[in-house]
Design a protein around this nucleic acid. Sequence first.
DNA 1: AAAATATATGTTCATTTGTTCATATGTATT
DNA 2: AATACATATGAACAAATGAACATATATTTT
Lengths: 108, 108
Amino acid sequence: MENSNAITKIKEAITRNNEVLDALADLYKVFADSTRVKILCALTQSEMCVGEISEFLDITQSAVSHQLRTLKASSLVKSQRKGKNIVYSLADEHVRTIIDCGMEHITE
Amino acid sequence: MENSNAITKIKEAITRNNEVLDALADLYKVFADSTRVKILCALTQSEMCVGEISEFLDITQSAVSHQLRTLKASSLVKSQRKGKNIVYSLADEHVRTIIDCGMEHITE
DNA sequence: AAAATATATGTTCATTTGTTCATATGTATT
DNA sequence: AATACATATGAACAAATGAACATATATTTT
């Protein structure tokens, strides 16, 4: 188990990119909850307001609002008022890509 | 906020794929910890034994072992004894893909 | 302006999670 | 076979997390 030269270089690379790897874990944390995944997955199909999400996931409006806050803080969704409602939609295409990416690992 | 037909169909799709979406969240849970991400990232460069990982991440051998257990349970890594050591490596290429996928969202 | 509707926020609580310590297991070396 | 070395496991504990409840805020409708 002597620390070979190759391993030392990898260690240095990991240390150098420490913050990026922390950020990566933080990003995945957002996807690491089935409620949030379902919200995101729904939003890949259509924009949606809070009440609609709350209804079809069958959880409190409060719970949905809290999760949307998390999603927004991670720049995964954006919101826009339309009349009485606030409509949420995906912030960009990365969400779709990340979901598809994970799906491939599941369905094999 | 009347429940339009389109929304109803999305609701049905989410409900139908409920288990898959739960599994997807579970997969991301594994990536949702910086220790595990760093282990996985290191393993994309080279196979490695427990002691080496423990040393360069500067955490207990026990902690590493526990995390490797989690990673193995999720079929993300595999292990193989080589002499005194047990060497861990990536189970397949999906890990690399998933990491790259998340990286793209971070670095933009 | 008052009432109704939609969403956000603060707090509390139960559960989950990651780490450490102590110890067990398994393999290699002498 | 005894000892040393490498890894795994169990238990305990602190920190993080997600949901619900109560309530605040904001916009629309009457």
